[in-house]
Computed example of a mutant assay.
Amino acid sequence: MDLLTQLRTHRIVAIVRGDDADASLRTVLALAEEGIPLIEVSLSGKDAVDVIRRARAALGPDAPLGAGTVLTAEDAQAVHEAGADFVVTPAVCAGISEAKRLQLPVLAGVMTPTDIVAAQELGADVLKLFPAEHAGGPAYLRALRGPFPNVPFVPVGGVDTEVARTYLAQGALAVGAGSPLIGDAADGGSIDALRTRARAFADAVRTVEAVR
């Protein structure tokens, strides 16, 4: 999987984390149907590895499907076996190097310049700026692009449709959206409401022109 191209094309990663495994699966499938094909199932959700396995079977072999909150080598191995084809971490951790050993692309969580250098040294393909809203939001991304102009950043944390547009305009490769997009759908809430939010997010990221 070419993660950079997928992110550049779709511009948003949906982060699914729920207390209801069946609802989480329904959420994944609804997102894909509504034009948000880049989906990460977080290991902090209930029965997440099984959700990934079931989602892979339902989506087919070619749909991009990620695993999030991958911290350890064991996490990376489990999601690889379940059918994930990219890995997302919340930090610089052992999950990065093991995922790379398994030939899975990695969106690695960073917050500081030191994190950025460390994640790159471990082979991370893309860097997840997290938690972006607490780091300083779009202004912090703009500051980081000074010393790291060619690093592909994906801000995550507190990203709604308006903030998504701002990050993309400031040069983010893509954004990650959790609760502002998913709401309570992965806990058994309304899938119809999720579909409405998904369409709004897809529209929001479609036409933003980034600064260079």
Rank of each mutant, 00 (worst) to 15 (best):
M111K: 09
L43H: 09
A118R: 15
R101I: 01
D47K: 15
E74M: 10
E81M: 11
V117M: 15
A63D: 03
V41H: 05
Q103K: 13
A84W: 07
H80G: 12
A55N: 09
S42M: 13
A119V: 06
L104G: 00
K100C: 05
D85F: 05
C93I: 02
E81T: 13
A94E: 15
A99M: 00
V117D: 14
G68P: 03
A82R: 03
L71K: 11
A67T: 03
T69Q: 09
I116Y: 07
E74I: 06
L59P: 02
I96D: 06
G95H: 04
A67W: 07
A55T: 01
R53F: 10
V79S: 02
D47S: 15
A78D: 12
A48L: 07
A76P: 10
A91G: 12
R54Q: 15
V110L: 08
F86Q: 00
L59E: 04
E81A: 14
V41N: 06
T112M: 10
V70L: 03
I96M: 01
E81R: 14
D115Y: 10
R53G: 09
A78F: 03
V87P: 00
V106Q: 05
V92A: 09
A82H: 07
P113N: 10
A55E: 05
D62P: 04
T69L: 00
T114D: 14
G60I: 09
V106G: 01
V41R: 10
E98F: 00
P105I: 03
V117F: 14
R54P: 06
E74Q: 14
V92S: 09
K100F: 00
T72I: 01
A63V: 12
P105W: 07
R53T: 12
D62N: 14
E81F: 06
V79T: 02
P105T: 02
R54A: 14
A78L: 11
L104S: 02
Q77L: 13
R54K: 15
V79D: 02
A94P: 11
A84I: 03
D115F: 05
P105L: 10
V88N: 01
G60T: 06
R53W: 11
D85M: 06
L65R: 01
G60W: 11
G66D: 02
L104Y: 01
T69K: 08
P113G: 08
L102G: 07
D47G: 12
L65Q: 04
V106S: 01
R101H: 12
A57F: 08
P64G: 00
L102E: 06
I96V: 13
T72C: 04
A55P: 06
A78K: 14
R53K: 14
T112L: 07
D75R: 11
A94D: 15
V110S: 03
A73Q: 12
S97T: 14
L65Y: 04
Q103T: 12
A108I: 08
G95W: 00
R101G: 05
A94Y: 10
H80E: 13
L102C: 04
D75K: 10
G83S: 09
V88S: 01
P64M: 09
K46Q: 15
G66H: 07
